[in-house]
């Protein structure tokens, strides 16, 4: 797996506009094996950025490289290394988790025996044994998220991107997902996650990036962000709100 010396994700000058600019000249570097949390208020451009990394959106400008593979110039090579998990798990209601994992393994070209073994392990690991051969149609949100996560892990990606993976999960399922992610990071996998649950980012992420109005306004470890905002901020919530306020104030000043 990747070491901290390698660069997992390199973004430079990334731009994307819909009706108005969503991402504005974003630069970002994430090291291999790092757990990175991307925070920001609603509409800040987090999901847009990550969807561009996953190849789901085409940037207007800028470059994205995943473990040295250019997402725009060599998308197949880049996708081979990446797994994308969205907040609304998109799985097939009429396939069973095992069939879903078989299908994903086929897409990523995993050898049959390896795929089957990994799938069994993942199903056990995520506590899906009982539902392994039942169709996903009647599954709860937590179970669907676990199936989607298993799909993301079955091809052993070097970079896992998760967009709000804990939204709507009960405490048990959320704990399971967090444990799986931490375990993968300890094995050298890089994880990038957006979340509005700031305690999770504070506890799990090695580095945190704060994005506001399409720009990265602060980045660093939790301690570095505390230092940056100063004034005795204790929690990430306080730090985050302060950073967002600062940016709003700066924008208002510029506008004036």
């Amino acid at each position: 797996m990747a070491s901290q010396n390698t660069t997992a994700l390199e973004i430079s000058g990334l731009e994307k506009a819909f009706d108005k600019p969503a991402v504005r000249g974003l630069d970002l570097n994430i090291a291999g094996g790092e757990f990175y949390a991307l925070l920001g208020p609603n509409g800040a451009g987090k999901t847009t950025t990550l969807r561009m990394v996953a190849g789901l959106l085409k940037p207007d400008a800028g470059e994205i490289s995943v473990f040295g593979s250019d997402v725009l110039k060599d998308p197949i090579a880049a996708r081979q290394k990446v797994a994308w998990v969205s907040d609304e798990p998109m799985i097939y209601d009429r396939l069973t988790p095992m069939e879903y994992l078989e299908f994903v393994s086929g897409l990523w070209g995993i050898d049959r025996e390896i795929a089957e073994k990994r799938s069994m392990e993942l199903v056990d690991w995520l506590g899906l044994q009982e539902q392994a051969n039942q169709r996903c149609g009647g599954f709860s949100k937590g179970m669907r998220q676990k199936v989607a996560l298993a799909g993301a892990l079955v091809h052993e990606p070097q970079l896992i991107i998760l967009d709000e993976p804990l939204t709507g999960l009960d405490a048990g399922s959320a704990r399971q997902v967090k444990d799986v992610l931490l375990s993968k990071v300890s094995q050298g996998t890089t994880v990038i996650m957006t979340t509005h649950i700031l305690e999770v980012a504070e506890r799990m992420a090695e580095r945190i990036g704060v994005i506001v109005q399409g720009k990265l306004v602060a980045e660093g470890t939790f301690e570095q962000l505390q230092e940056l905002t100063g004034k005795g901020k204790k929690t990430l919530e306080e730090v985050f709100l302060d950073l967002v306020e600062q940016d709003d104030a700066a924008n208002a000043e510029l506008a004036a």
Partner: peptide, 13 residues
């Protein structure tokens, strides 16, 4: 489409 159990026939990847 409640969780109707399927017979798992092994991977055909």
């Amino acid at each position: 489409h409640s969780g109707k159990a399927q017979e798992f026939k092994g991977f055909r990847v």
